[in-house]
């Protein structure tokens, strides 16, 4: 009886997945608190993932009309953000007319190096920002999306 119920649930899920063409969600893995010291450099690494079967433009797309991957830090005690984007892949798709485009797929890291001001208040604080991306699969594209970024830093 339990197996029959599980079978029905998984069969329904498989059918839904088969016909779903939902917009893909780029996800940022939950980040543990980052300990930083006043007057010292600090690094925040965001672990980002995009579902299989989709790609997003890299931070330097090959076509000026394409919307680039873009991380912007907008709030928090850290300064001087220097962002290292993932190394892109050059891939060809059904709609690229034989050309390769610069994309990111699957799991990748976004690394930001900061400086912690000497006079920063000690204790926990939120370092916030937005990750913007625009994703497609082999046949269709989805509207650009903004993912909020919120990392807790502990200033010592």
């Amino acid at each position: 009886m339990r197996f029959r119920s599980c079978f029905k649930v998984l069969l329904f899920t498989a059918t839904a997945a088969l016909f779903a063409q939902m917009a893909p969600q780029m996800k940022i893995a939950p980040q543990p608190t980052v300990k930083v010291k006043r007057g010292a450099p600090a690094t925040i690494t965001l672990k980002v993932s995009l579902p299989a079967g989709f790609h997003a433009n890299s931070d330097k797309p090959t076509d000026p009309n394409l919307i680039p991957l873009s991380l912007k830090w907008t709030g928090g005690p850290l300064q001087g953000a220097a962002i290292t984007y993932p190394k892109p892949q050059l891939e060809e798709y059904g709609f690229t007319g034989g050309k390769k485009i610069s994309v990111v797929t699957g799991d990748f890291d976004l690394v930001t190096k900061f400086k912690v001001p000497a006079g920063a208040a000690t204790g926990p604080a939120a370092e916030t920002g937005t990750l913007r991306y625009q994703a497609c699969n082999n046949r269709m594209c989805f509207a650009p999306k903004n993912v909020p970024v919120n990392v807790t830093v502990s200033v010592e």
């Binding site: 498989a14 997945a17 088969l18 299989a52 989709f54």
Partner: peptide
């Protein structure tokens, strides 16, 4: 499920 998810996306 794996086949269905793959076909559903690509």
């Amino acid at each position: 499920t794996g086949i269905a998810v793959t076909l559903g996306t690509v």
